[in-house]
Structures are given as structure tokens and as C-alpha cells.
């Protein structure tokens, strides 16, 4: 079980579940769902914010929230 913060950039993965229900609820409402392919495209210079791709959609997410996304 790895969190999104533990994979390298461009490494493909599949979302399994969310650890924080509040963050999870927000992710769900934006169409980021368990079972969807996800990858980190890039990070900011200090690594605090991630540019991610879920399915065909792109999002920016803080590291703190990314840590709540558990991968298969």
C-alpha cells in the first residue's frame, strides 16, 4: 500500500481509496474516484504541490492532500 506521495513522477498507478474522509469527499465530488488511473506529472520546486493527472483530467493538489490518496 503506497500513498500518492510515495511514487515517482510519470509512474502510472491506480487509486485504491482515500484515508481522510473530508479530502476524500472533495476528491470524489471533483470526479477523482477509486479505480481511476492516476499519475504525478510534475512537482513544484520545493515539492509542496503536485501536478497530477487522473484519467484525462489534470489537477493541482497539495502534498498534504496527496498523502490521503492510497494506491493499489
Amino acid at each position: 500500500m503506497r500513498a500518492l506521495t510515495e511514487i515517482r513522477e510519470e509512474e502510472p498507478a491506480i487509486i485504491s481509496y482515500f484515508t481522510d474522509p473530508r479530502v476524500g469527499a472533495k476528491l470524489l465530488s471533483m470526479g477523482i474516484l477509486p479505480g481511476y488511473p492516476i499519475k504525478i506529472l510534475r512537482k513544484t520546486a520545493r515539492g509542496k504541490t503536485f501536478y497530477i493527472k487522473v484519467g484525462d483530467n489534470r489537477f493541482a493538489i497539495r502534498k498534504k492532500e496527496a498523502a490521503c490518496i492510497v494506491l493499489k
Binding site: 473530508r22 479530502v23 472533495k26 476528491l27 471533483m30 477523482i32 504541490t49 501536478y51 483530467n57 489534470r58 489537477f59 493541482a60 493538489i61 497539495r62 492532500e65
Partner: peptide
């Protein structure tokens, strides 16, 4: 509210 940042990067 607790600040969260999850935003869409539209095309």
C-alpha cells in the same frame, strides 16, 4: 474551514 487545495487545471 480547513484549507484544502485540489483544483482543476483546465485545458
Amino acid at each position: 474551514e480547513t484549507a484544502m487545495l485540489i483544483i482543476e487545471l483546465p485545458e
